[in-house]
Design a protein around this nucleic acid. Structure first.
Lengths: 116, 116
DNA sequence: AATAATGGTTTCCTTTAGGAAACTAGTTTC
DNA sequence: GAAACTAGTTTCCTAAAGGAAACCATTATT
């Protein structure tokens, strides 16, 4: 008879950690927004909208709110002539740098792979 | 007047690479499936179903098909007593190791962060 | 003969994600 | 006074993701 293969608790914890990460960064846009902020530093709403190609203002607004709730970015209203709003990664948000770089590198690697 | 901030083409390419990666690994389960295969090596369908907690057989089947189409895993039918099917990462699939490890590490880091 | 394990598929349903377009409101430039 | 830029919100809609439960065919065990 086949022995039951049960994953170790440690292993299950690791898989759960992957799930936690994907819950925060899943979806089409969030990780792109963070990547853009990593590459450009502080950005305003319209700058982000232009930089993250194809995103609708509603989606950008919603994702920014969720990222702020998760303490990955900050939102700062500047009392300038026309009011402006600045978005910036928090120190915690900046800890995503390695992950984002890996996602970039693998995307390029995969592109080369499918081009044979 | 504010100067127009236009991202460099190189920068846009990097953001697009992130999008490519997320297109393949997006969703709730794919990256967990790959992480499980990384930690355990070759696995059969029911083993995966037990290891990836909560996944429905339909979803597992569908995601495995998509991962196979993208050349990240192989599916091998073994002509054993009751027929068994083995899933395994391809060499290309194994190049996701760094990314998966980063996703694990960050998930743990984030858990510690929100627990203060 | 019944039960359980293999690897799935089928059906039905709900939820979520996401997109297009229009709109708001304040400020500033033409 | 009209147009444009700021940062969004609102409404309406479609498509995709995902879950629950039942089912199927084969083989092996009790």
């Amino acid at each position: 008879m086949k022995q039951k293969i049960e994953l170790s608790p440690q292993c299950k914890g690791q898989i759960r950690a992957i799930g936690d990460t994907m819950e925060l960064l899943g979806g089409k846009w969030k990780i792109k927004i963070i990547g853009t902020l990593l590459l450009n530093g502080t950005m305003r709403f319209m700058e982000l909208k232009r930089a993250v190609e194809g995103i609708a203002p509603k989606k950008l607004s919603k994702d920014l709110q969720e990222l702020e709730l998760n303490e990955l970015i900050t939102r700062t209203v500047k009392e300038t002539k026309p009011i402006t709003v600045e978005y910036e990664l928090t120190p915690h948000g900046r800890t995503l740098e390695n992950l984002i770089n890996e996602a970039m590198n693998w995307g390029i690697l995969h592109r080369n792979h499918i081009l044979k």
